[in-house]
């Protein structure tokens, strides 16, 4: 358990944030706010969440996707950061572990994740 004073301090900041619930194995899409000079725009990044780390305001997710030229890309996002506009869950995956680093060694059909069937 974390210290209650630290939790209180972080709770105040996270009160307005609404992040959907997701787990490792889910396909998520994040809209990242990008500042270019005076303009700001949104850039979408979609991939499989392969790890969730940290507690409170420091919580991060690792999102893996295969880019257009077949190279794997992994980006780490602080999910409660103001630099993230929104997070959407696109697909629920059925996986048996919390960290999916084994996906790095797999490619093509082997690297697929079955969709979670809800009862």
């Amino acid at each position: 358990m974390r210290n209650r004073y630290i939790e209180n301090f972080e709770k105040k900041q996270l009160a307005q944030k609404s992040i959907p619930e997701f787990r490792a194995g889910d396909t998520v899409s994040l809209a990242v706010i990008i500042k270019e000079g005076s303009k700001t725009r949104l850039q979408n990044y979609e991939g499989v969440c392969i790890a969730i780390r940290g507690e409170g305001t420091g919580r991060t997710i690792m999102v893996r996707k295969i880019s257009a030229n077949g190279v794997g890309i992994e980006r780490i996002f602080p999910i409660y950061s103001d630099s993230i506009d929104n997070i959407k869950v696109i697909r629920r995956g059925r996986v048996r572990r919390a960290k999916l680093f084994y996906l790095r060694d797999l490619a093509g059909k082997k690297a697929r994740i079955k969709e979670l069937r809800r009862k």
Binding site: N3, I6, G56, T57
Partner: peptide
């Protein structure tokens, strides 16, 4: 000294919490 945390602003700031 209680411990450390951070803010969610951009850029994020490291914070130390102290209890009187």
């Amino acid at each position: 000294k209680i411990g450390m945390s951070r803010t969610i602003t951009v850029p994020s700031q490291p914070v130390t919490l102290l209890k009187l």
